[in-house]
């Protein structure tokens, strides 16, 4: 899986690269418009993360260029300008997703995985982790071949855990994933615990092992032995 990261801020580029590298991706990066254009002309990528405001040009022009080349890469805009105009324009000219800065790397990871899953319809449709089998297209979950009836929030929570398995995900990043901008207004994360408790209960009923570990006060880790 090859990812191109187009981002002018060196520290951010470094962190994202490191995180995605740990996820097993091959990550290349470009720091400005011209370097980005050179790379997209020469190489093929599965996914391209593009910042809109770049030295020497706009990320939107890179997206247009990619579309002209009929590139198959999935495109995610990562922008500090959280304006709906940019979002609409970006999605209009062919970007697949839009993530406003500042974002959680766990959230970025889950967006990339979701995008790659959508792009590879012909491939393996199910996500399998030991006895858990998720079919994202249908939003169904089976444990030991038995269907588990989950609410929308419980399903999103499980998928988020599995996408970021063997990683510590903070409660804040879970809240952001499940509630989006509304999570700004949440003073505490008690509701995460409510959904988590229900999810655990429903999975256990079908004989699923408890993979979810609590990491002190800060978050959880969906631990699967590799």
């Amino acid at each position: 899986m090859k990812i191109l990261l187009i981002e002018d801020e060196p520290d951010l580029r470094k962190s994202i690269k490191q995180y995605l590298h740990q996820e097993g991706y091959v990550v290349e990066s470009a720091s400005d418009f011209i370097k980005a254009l050179e790379k997209t002309m020469v190489y093929e990528y599965d996914c391209i993360l593009v910042d809109i405001t770049l030295p020497n040009g706009s990320g939107l022009d890179i997206i247009k260029q990619l579309k002209q080349q009929h590139s198959k890469a999935g495109i995610i805009i990562i922008s500090a300008k959280n304006s709906s105009d940019d979002k609409i324009i970006g999605l209009d000219i062919g970007a697949d997703d839009y993530l406003a800065k500042p974002f959680n790397l766990a959230e970025l990871n889950s967006r990339i995985k979701a995008l790659i899953r959508r792009r590879n319809f012909d491939g393996n449709k199910a996500i399998v982790v030991n006895e858990i089998n998720i079919i994202p297209e249908e939003r169904t979950v089976k444990v030991n071949n038995e269907q588990v009836m989950l609410t929308a929030k419980e399903y999103d929570l499980l998928l988020f855990f599995i996408t970021n398995k063997n990683r510590v995900v903070s409660k804040n990043s879970i809240a952001e994933h499940l509630w989006g901008d509304d999570s700004d207004q949440m003073d505490n994360h008690d509701f995460i615990y409510v959904h988590l408790r229900n999810l655990r209960k429903k999975l256990a009923e079908k004989g699923c092992r408890d993979y979810i570990q609590m990491i002190y006060g800060i978050g959880y880790n969906f631990k699967v032995n590799v």
Partner: peptide, 12 residues
């Protein structure tokens, strides 16, 4: 974004 990204890494 830089702080948040580094924090995510640090957590790991």
């Amino acid at each position: 974004a830089v702080i948040k990204a580094n924090l995510s890494l640090l957590l790991q």
